[in-house]
Design a protein around this nucleic acid. Structure first.
Length: 269
DNA sequence: AATCGTTCCTGATAGC
DNA sequence: TGCTATCAGGAACGAT
């Protein structure tokens, strides 16, 4: 499930690989909101990330917004990949580029979103999103203000893109383990010290994950089809019934607001 | 205004 | 072995 580190990895590689290329054709088999006439012939100026959205800036004042949701993948075409029947089955979009390669979007569960719209309208859609946790603007007071008085489990607050952007289920679990906080604890009940621990765990965990090119726990793959490395060193996510890396208690899995949540009952208070 | 539950979809796997 | 039920997940949406 692509979260900030996975999306950032893909965006960095897209910038290396497809910048300044022209889109010369489009194939799709799901009703994505893309006007062919506006897309074909446009040139890619660059690729950015906002929250978990991939934004491809085009030279015609348009932006292609791609949200991978759970199983969306963006892959640069390789003949080997496309000959693989299992992979081809879930390909729903193919952008032909003017260097002869193809930018391929596949999505097993079909939750992914791909929209072409004007710069103005795409940016308007993204307006309410919370601050970027790895930006300079994400100081402790900014974080504190975003979560203060919220009568919700801190786990759910961290997952809310309109509070802080980019964190999903894997990294919210790991952040709270690192900060030694029970995920069920209400945000409004956290002490200043606890909030500071969470704030510093956010940048620590996310930047470590970016260095390792994300987590391939279920089916995330990068732009080249390769796995990330964070899953090997993950702190608590999906370690249900295993021993805590810190206190050796058994990791529990519970539901919080419909989300599965792994934590250590021994050292997360 | 903030929070909660439901929904979309498919493949993997747990349980019988 | 083979079937069915459950689970996984982000975020839009409607209800409270």
């Amino acid at each position: 499930m692509p979260e900030l580190p996975e999306v950032q990895t893909i965006v960095s590689d897209l910038n290396k690989e497809i910048k300044n290329l022209r889109i010369v054709n489009l194939w799709l088999d799901l009703p994505y909101s893309i006007d062919r006439k506006k897309l074909i012939g446009s040139t890619i100026l660059g690729v950015r990330r906002r929250a978990k959205n991939i934004l491809i800036d085009l030279d015609n004042e348009g932006i292609l917004l791609i949200h991978l949701k759970m199983t969306g993948k963006l892959i640069i075409n390789s003949k080997i990949k496309m000959q693989n029947e299992k992979f081809r089955k879930h390909v729903h979009l193919v952008f032909d580029l003017d260097d002869g390669r193809e930018l391929v979007f596949s999505d097993v569960r079909k939750f992914g979103k791909v929209i072409l719209d004007s710069k103005k309208r795409i940016e308007a859609r993204l307006l309410g999103l919370g601050p970027e946790p790895l930006s300079k603007e994400f100081t402790f007071p900014v974080f504190d203000l975003a979560i203060v008085n919220r009568r919700r489990a801190i786990k759910l607050v961290l997952l809310d893109q309109y509070v802080i952007s980019g964190i999903g289920n894997i990294y919210s679990d790991d952040i709270l383990w690192k900060a030694r906080i029970d995920p069920r604890k209400l945000a409004c009940d956290l002490s200043l010290k606890e909030k500071k621990r969470i704030w510093s765990a956010i940048s620590n965990v996310l930047s470590r994950a970016i260095k390792l090119r994300g987590s391939s726990i279920s089916d995330y793959r990068d732009f080249y089809g390769k796995e990330g490395g964070y899953q090997k060193i993950r702190l608590v996510y999906d370690r249900y019934k295993e021993k805590c890396r810190r206190c050796a208690a058994m990791i529990l899995k519970i539901k919080i607001g419909g989300r599965s949540s792994c934590f250590c009952p021994g050292c997360q208070k």
